[in-house]
């Protein structure tokens, strides 16, 4: 006969284990439910036509989201072009100057920036760029999204580089490399996969942002590649069309939702694969 105290402990241990497993499973439920629902509703709306055409006027069936696809890609690309260099440089500074005063203020600023509501960023960019330029424009949307990307890129760069052993830097310095070459040719390449994963995750993060684009990129029913003019994007299209009273537009919004979801999922999955493949074995 087992000691009752011991038995009680074993039972307790087992039940806690089961609870943990249960919650680990539960965490996947919302995602699966969302994917399932969007897939179920959206899949029937998607066809080749859906990718190559622009939305039809109200009352006509069919139409596609080509304008939003082109717009989203361009806006995100420009945002990344702005945020990635600044973010990586800033991350390098923070990891190289752990104790400086500027770094601690800068870190605080990054944290606050990360917590800034996106709609606030949007409205500030409206006053800074849209009003002075006199028109809604894709580039102002890109700037708003770049501001949202920055904290993610900075933090992931900083954390990645901080984990590299200092012996690596010393190896470079002892070979007579100047400091900037040690950073550019030793530190950054060794942390490359981590930096890249930060960049890709930040792209995935902003791809679906709507609020900052409302007063900046504004939306456009036609395909436009002029970044100084209003431009459509997937989240804007979803927002505008899903809140409209027309059945045909709802269909477009569902299709666009599915595309956006797949885009973000693919970004996340490729990030995982790439970082695993390119990870530098220390």
């Amino acid at each position: 006969m087992m000691n009752p105290k011991l038995r009680y402990r074993l039972v307790k241990s087992k039940s806690v284990e089961w609870i943990i497993v249960l919650f680990a499973f539960l965490i996947t439920v919302p995602l699966i439910a969302i994917i399932f629902f969007v897939l179920k509703t959206g899949i029937s709306k998607i066809s080749w036509h859906f990718f190559t055409n622009i939305p039809k006027p109200v009352g006509e069936a069919g139409g596609g989201i080509a304008n939003a696809l082109v717009g989203s890609l361009l806006i995100v690309l420009v945002a990344a072009l702005i945020a990635v260099p600044i973010g990586i440089l800033c991350g390098i500074y923070l990891s190289e100057n752990k104790d400086s005063k500027l770094a601690s203020y800068s870190r605080l600023a990054v944290d606050v920036l990360q917590g800034t509501p996106s709609i606030v960023t949007g409205i500030v960019i409206y006053f800074w760029l849209v009003k002075p330029l006199g028109t809604f424009s894709a580039v102002s949307g890109s700037v708003a999204l770049a501001i949202m990307m920055l904290p993610i890129v900075i933090r992931s760069t900083e954390e990645t580089l901080k984990l590299l052993p200092s012996s690596l830097k010393e190896a470079g310095l002892a070979l007579g490399l100047p400091y900037h070459k040690v950073i550019l040719r030793v530190v950054v390449p060794c942390g490359f996969s981590g930096i890249l994963s930060g960049v890709m995750l930040s792209v995935a993060r902003i791809a679906g942002e709507t609020a900052p684009l409302l007063f900046t990129a504004f939306g456009n029913p036609y395909i436009s590649t002029n970044v100084l003019k209003p431009m459509q994007s997937l989240p804007l299209l979803i927002f505008n069309y899903a809140t409209s009273p027309y059945e045909e537009w709802h269909d477009l919004a569902w299709g666009a939702s599915l595309i956006l979801l797949i885009w973000v999922l693919l970004l996340n999955i490729t990030t995982k694969l790439i970082t695993r493949k390119w990870k530098v074995q220390l």
Binding site: L168, A171, G172, A174, G176, R185, P189
Partner: peptide, 26 residues
């Protein structure tokens, strides 16, 4: 030149490139 306590070859470089790292990276 210097050799450290713990071996610290450049993890992103091949053996070949590690040997000429002083030239290559410079």
């Amino acid at each position: 030149g210097m050799v450290f306590q713990r071996p610290n070859p450049f993890p992103n470089l091949s053996i070949y490139d590690n040997v000429i790292a002083g030239y290559k990276l410079n």
